[in-house]
């Protein structure tokens, strides 16, 4: 059997710091696109049992639009952006597109792509890892179904999921989105080794 990976506080701190820098870059990119200031909360990094990980992004029955970017290379991971319906509508109106339409979906996909790539590029620059994001897919569904499917896709043979979770808040617009980075366990080992914490 595969023994469950354990992470020390120091390792989780290092991952949180990576998430901080990555989401900082993503926030700058979002701010540039919207012409609005964007705040980032303090990110979390946690290793959770799978069933808890599904609930980490909120009530599983909640509806949201998710943009998913699979990441391949030295580190296999998934970047997932979740837009709750109201925030999606606000974001679309800031971008001048109609929410719930094909244009709206494609605009969210593009935001996901730009944010995901800026996050991943800063990670790659810091660690020297080769990371290649694939084109994003946009899906509107229950948060629980989206997250469970992402976790199943990674198909790790362990019962823990590692989540790096940040929130991007568009100032004064009642608009925020959840940014999740879900590395595979093999990937995280590689990442920690590069940071000298393996």
């Amino acid at each position: 059997m595969t023994s469950p990976p354990q992470y020390t506080d120091m390792q989780l701190d290092a991952l949180r710091e990576l998430a901080n820098i990555g989401s900082g870059n993503a926030g700058t990119a979002l701010s540039g696109m919207l012409g609005q200031p964007v705040d980032i909360n303090v990110p979390a990094a946690a290793a959770l049992p799978l069933a808890d990980a599904v609930e980490a992004a909120g009530e599983p029955a909640t509806l949201a639009t998710g943009v998913v970017l699979p990441i391949f290379g030295d580190l296999d991971a998934t970047v997932l952006l979740l837009f709750p319906p109201d925030d999606e509508a606000t974001l679309c109106s800031l971008l001048g597109v109609e929410p719930g339409t094909e244009d709206g979906r494609s605009a969210l996909g593009e935001i996901g792509n730009i944010l995901g790539c800026s996050y991943v590029n800063s990670l790659a620059a810091m660690t020297g890892l080769e990371l290649e994001p694939r084109p994003p897919e946009t899906v509107a569904d229950m948060v629980g179904a989206i997250l469970a499917t992402v976790l199943a896709t990674q198909a790790d043979q362990t019962n823990l999921a590692l989540l790096m979770d940040s929130r991007l808040i568009v100032e004064g617009q009642q608009c925020e989105l959840t940014f999740l980075m879900l590395p595979s366990h093999d990937g995280i080992g590689e990442l920690l080794t590069r940071l000298g914490l393996g």
């Binding site: 699979p70 899906v139 896709t153």
Partner: peptide, 16 residues
């Protein structure tokens, strides 16, 4: 057993 993303189908049938 839904297929929510197309990329989950790598190497044949989807996970769902």
């Amino acid at each position: 057993g839904a297929q929510m993303f197309t990329f989950s189908g790598e190497g044949g049938a989807t996970i769902g």
